[in-house]
């Protein structure tokens, strides 16, 4: 739609017209702020816990487990230096053989959600798929945080109330 709009403006005598072709989806998926009625509603990005422990592929599970527990977590997200998500470790993975490298211990390629998804949609998806937690990333795969079912369900409920 926007290419037609851009050309139409050209036809009306506008000389300097640009088309942000990837559009609103690209903006939202990058976790950037918007204005409007949805911006007032709770969304995945705002509810995700940004303090979730992270780890690298070449770390030993035992170190990561200790770090996570010390921070009061039973989950950790495996990322690279750019915070691009490679894997997720929930309680089950964290309980594995401590000598393993994270690259072996983690659940690779976890499904991720974008920050703009509304809490009500997230709550439904997480309940339907019995997900206790899920990773929220920007469209380029960078970690925003870990979204907990225990955070999103009440937030979704308060919205519909």
């Amino acid at each position: 739609m926007s290419p037609r709009a851009a050309w139409r403006l050209e036809s009306l005598g506008f000389r300097d017209v640009y088309d942000y072709t990837v559009g609103k989806l690209d903006w939202l998926a990058a976790g950037l702020p918007t204005e409007g009625t949805n911006a007032q509603k709770p969304q995945a990005g705002g509810l995700a816990r940004m303090d979730v422990p992270t780890c690298h592929l070449d770390e030993r599970l035992t170190e990561v487990r200790q770090r996570a527990q010390a921070a009061g977590w039973n989950a950790a997200v495996a990322v690279n230096e750019e915070r691009v998500v490679f894997g997720l470790l929930r309680a089950k993975e964290l309980a594995g053989d401590g000598e393993q490298l994270i690259s072996v211990a983690m659940r690779p390629g976890p499904s991720t959600f974008r920050p703009y998804v509304l809490a009500e949609e997230m709550a439904k998806a997480m309940l339907d798929h019995k997900l206790e937690s899920t990773v929220v990333t920007t469209s380029d795969g960078r970690l925003v945080g870990l979204l907990l079912q225990s955070d999103v369900v009440p937030a979704a409920g308060s919205k519909s109330a």
Binding site: M1, S2, A5, A6, L9, L12, G13, F14, R15, D16, V17, Y18, D19, Y20, T21, V22, G23, K24, L25, D26, W27
Partner: peptide
Amino acid sequence: AKVLDKDRAVIVYCWD
């Protein structure tokens, strides 16, 4: 288009 200034750059966007 009257609300727009022809002498300034215009950026349009839609969903994707």
